[in-house]
Nucleic acid binder design. Structure first.
Length: 585
DNA sequence: TCAACAGGCGCG
DNA sequence: AAAGCGCGCCTGTTGA
C-alpha cells in the first residue's frame, strides 16, 4: 500500500492513499499529528510512503522517534529518470517535475519549502508568494506529488534499457532513508581521544588569544627548520605552493610542483622535513581542533549524506569531509560501553564488479573466490603487484605501469572484460552515454566538450589540438563510470538490504530491531552509522555483533543476486567486530 | 571585499 | 610517449 504524504504546517500533515499505478484511492485527509499517524500506520500495515524527498521530510519524523520501513522518494527518483532520458539538466525538484507532467507553470517553490520546514511555526501566511492559506498550499503540493508519482511509476515500468531499473529506484529511495537515519544516529566519536592525538602530534592547541594565524608548536618548529635547511633569508610560507617552489628552486631543487610525489623524487635534507610538515599541516587544518569544535557534539559526528551526490551514484557528504576522514583518526571512533562496531567492507569490489558485468568466463573464474589479484597474476604470469596495477589501469584508463606489458597480457587473457571497458571508453570518446548495470546513466558531454571535439566526436574532423585530449579524457571517465557506478549500484542494494534485515521484526533478526534513536531509554538495537562507498559500519550492542556480521553476509549475497542475477563471481565481505574503528583491517 | 580558481591532499 | 577514475575542503592567489 502506498500513501502520499505532505508534511506541515507545523506538526500537521496531509495524507492520501494511492495505488501502485499512482491513482488516488480516497480523499486526502488532514491529520494534526503527522508523526503519530505515520507511526501508527507503520505498526498496522506495510506502507510505502510517497513523499517529495526523504532529506526534506524524514528528519522531522526521526526527531519524533518515528522510523519508516519503505518510501518512494520523488526527487531522487526523478533525478534517476532524467539521467536515464539524458536530460539531466532539467530540475528534479517536485514543482518542476509536476510542471513537466501537467504542462502547467510550476508552483512557486517557496510553498513546498516552507511547508517542509521542520517543527517551526507555520510561517506560510507571511509568505507573499503564496496565494492562499496553508491547507491550500499543502493540497497543491499533494496534487503535484500524486501526479508526478503516477508519471514516475509509468516511466519506470516502461524502461526500455534496463530491466533492473526498478531495483535502482527502490534502492535509491531506501538510501535516502538510511542517509537520514545515519545522520540522526551519528558516528560515535571520542573528542578526548582526538584531542590527545592532536596534542601528541602537533603540540598543545594554540590559545585563542594568540590569534587566528598562530600555529601549534610542532608546525612552527618544522617551518623554522625548513627555512633554515633551504638557506632562505626570509621565512617561507609553506602553505603557498608558489613561494615554496621558488624557495626550493633557489636552493637548487627544480621541481615541477610541490606535491608529495614530486618531492619524493629528490634527495635533500629538507625533503623529510617538508613531507612531515605537509602531513601534520593537513591534519591541523582539515581535522584539527576547529573541526572537532564544529562537527562533533554529544559524542557523535553527524555529517549530512547526499544520496546519489556523485555522478556515479556514490554518496557525497556536506560538512566535515566525512568521506575523507584520515585513517589515523579512526582511533577516535569507539563503540559505546557494552556496544561494538561491526566494520564490513567489500573486498576488491571493482574488479569483481567488472568480472560480473563483462561476462568474461576466464575473468569470472578469477573472481570466483579468493584474491582476484593473485588469480590474475597467475593467469598473466606476473607478480601480484603488477597484476593489480594492470587491472586498475584497465578500469581507470592508465598506462599500466611497466610500459603496458601486463596490460597487454591482460587484454589477451581476458578479452571480453577488456572489450567491455574498451567499448565504454569508445562510447565516451564519441560523446555517447554509458549506463551502470542497474541503469544509472552518465551525464552527456558538456557544450564545451562538444565544441572542442567537433560535435559528434568524429575523430576524422578534429581540428582543435585539445580535441584528442578532451575526447580521451571523456573516454577514461566513461570507462571508469561503468565499473564505479555498477559498484555503487551493488553497494547501495547491499545497504538497503542490510537495513531491512536489521529492522525486520518477527524473523530470525527479531532481536535486531533498531534502536529508537530519539528515545535513549528505548529498546537498543543495531544502527547503521557510516557508509563509505564499499564499506559499512554498524554500531550495536556487543551481544548482537555476530548476528549483525551474519546479516552483512546475507545482504551481500542478496545484493549480488538482485544486481547481477546468477553469476559465478563472489563478493566476499571483510568483516570485523571491534571496539574501535582503527582495529578493523 | 569577495567570489572564483588553482594547487594540494584526504578518502574510496 | 604519456596518461590514468570519482569526490570535499583547506589555503593562497587573482581579479572584478
Amino acid at each position: 500500500m502506498r500513501v502520499a504524504v505532505v508534511p506541515g504546517p507545523g506538526r500537521a500533515g496531509l495524507l492520501c492513499a494511492v495505488a501502485d499505478n499512482g491513482e488516488p484511492l480516497d480523499q486526502p485527509a488532514t491529520v494534526s499529528d503527522l508523526a503519530a499517524v505515520v507511526a501508527e500506520r507503520e505498526r498496522s500495515a506495510s506502507v510505502r510512503w510517497v513523499w517529495q524527498s526523504s532529506a526534506l521530510v524524514y528528519p522531522r519524523l526521526l526527531r519524533a522517534g518515528v522510523r519508516v520501513g519503505r518510501c518512494h522518494d520523488i526527487e531522487l527518483t526523478e533525478a534517476l529518470l532524467l539521467g536515464r532520458d539524458e536530460t539531466p539538466d532539467q530540475p528534479a525538484r517536485l514543482a518542476a517535475a509536476a510542471a513537466r507532467v501537467t504542462g502547467r507553470p510550476p508552483r512557486s517553490e517557496p510553498a513546498s519549502l516552507l511547508l517542509a520546514e521542520p517543527d517551526g511555526p507555520p510561517r506560510l501566511f507571511d509568505d507573499p508568494h503564496l496565494a492562499g492559506p496553508a491547507d491550500q498550499a499543502a493540497r497543491a503540493v499533494l496534487d503535484d506529488l500524486i501526479a508526478v508519482h503516477a508519471s514516475q511509476q509509468a516511466r519506470i515500468g516502461a524502461d526500455p534499457q534496463t530491466p533492473r531499473f526498478g531495483v535502482l529506484t527502490t534502492a535509491e529511495s531506501a538510501g535516502g532513508l538510511v542517509a537520514a537515519e545515519m545522520t540522526a544516529a551519528g558516528l560515535p566519536w571520542r573528542a578526548e581521544i582526538h584531542n590527545e592525538l592532536l596534542t601528541e602530534l602537533l603540540g598543545p592547541r594554540p590559545p585563542a588569544a594568540a590569534g587566528p594565524s598562530a600555529r601549534p608548536g610542532r608546525l612552527a618548529e618544522l617551518a623554522a627548520e625548513i627555512s633554515a635547511a633551504l638557506g632562505a633569508v626570509r621565512p617561507v610560507n609553506l602553505d603557498s605552493p608558489a613561494q615554496l617552489l621558488r624557495a626550493l628552486s633557489a636552493a637548487g631543487l627544480r621541481l615541477p610542483s610541490t606535491r608529495v610525489s614530486a618531492l619524493r623524487t629528490v634527495d635533500h635534507p629538507v625533503i623529510p622535513l617538508l613531507l612531515r610538515y605537509k602531513e601534520l599541516s593537513r591534519l591541523y587544518t582539515a581535522n584539527g581542533w576547529s573541526w572537532l569544535d564544529t562537527w562533533v557534539s554529544g559524542g557523535r559526528f553527524r555529517p549530512e549524506y547526499i544520496v546519489g551526490g556523485v555522478v556515479s551514484g556514490r554518496w557525497a557528504t556536506r560538512g566535515g569531509g566525512a568521506l575523507q576522514i584520515p585513517r589515523v583518526l579512526r582511533r577516535a571512533v569507539v563503540a559505546d560501553p557494552g556496544w561494538s562496531l561491526v566494520v564490513a567492507d567489500a573486498a576488491q569490489l571493482e574488479p569483481r564488479i567488472l568480472a560480473a558485468l563483462a561476462g568474461d568466463r576466464a575473468f569470472a573464474a578469477a573472481a570466483a573466490r579468493g584474491d582476484v589479484y593473485d588469480a590474475v597474476a597467475d593467469a598473466i604470469g606476473a607478480d601480484r603487484a603488477k597484476a593489480k596495477v594492470a587491472l586498475l589501469s584497465a578500469m581507470y584508463g592508465g598506462g599500466g605501469g611497466d610500459g603496458g606489458h601486463s596490460l597487454a597480457l591482460l587484454r589477451r587473457r581476458f578479452p571480453q572484460a577488456s572489450a567491455f571497458v574498451e567499448a565504454a571508453a569508445r562510447a565516451g570518446e564519441e560523446g555517447r552515454a554509458v549506463r551502470s548495470v542497474l541503469g544509472r546513466t552518465c551525464p552527456p558531454p558538456s557544450a564545451a566538450w562538444l565544441s572542442i571535439t567537433g560535435e559528434s566526436g568524429d575523430p576524422g574532423h578534429e581540428r582543435d589540438p585539445d580535441a584528442g585530449r578532451a575526447s580521451r579524457a571523456r573516454g577514461r571517465f566513461t570507462r571508469n563510470f561503468v565499473v564505479q557506478a555498477s559498484a555503487a549500484d551493488w553497494a547501495l542494494v547491499l545497504l538497503a538490504t542490510l537495513r531491512t534485515i536489521l529492522a525486520r521484526p518477527g524473523d530470525p533478526g527479531a532481536a535486531l530491531a533498531p534502536a529508537d534513536i530519539a528515545w535513549p531509554g528505548g529498546r537498543p538495537g543495531p544502527q547503521l552509522v557510516f557508509f563509505q562507498h564499499d564499506e559499512v559500519v554498524v554500531h550495536c550492542p556487543a551481544s548482537q555483533a555476530d548476528e549483525v556480521a551474519a546479516a552483512v553476509s546475507m545482504a551481500a549475497a542478496t545484493a549480488t543476486r538482485l544486481v547481477f542475477g546468477p553469476t559465478e563471481v563472489t563478493f566476499p565481505m571483510t568483516t570485523a567486530v571491534v571496539n574501535c574503528y582503527s582495529e578493523a583491517k
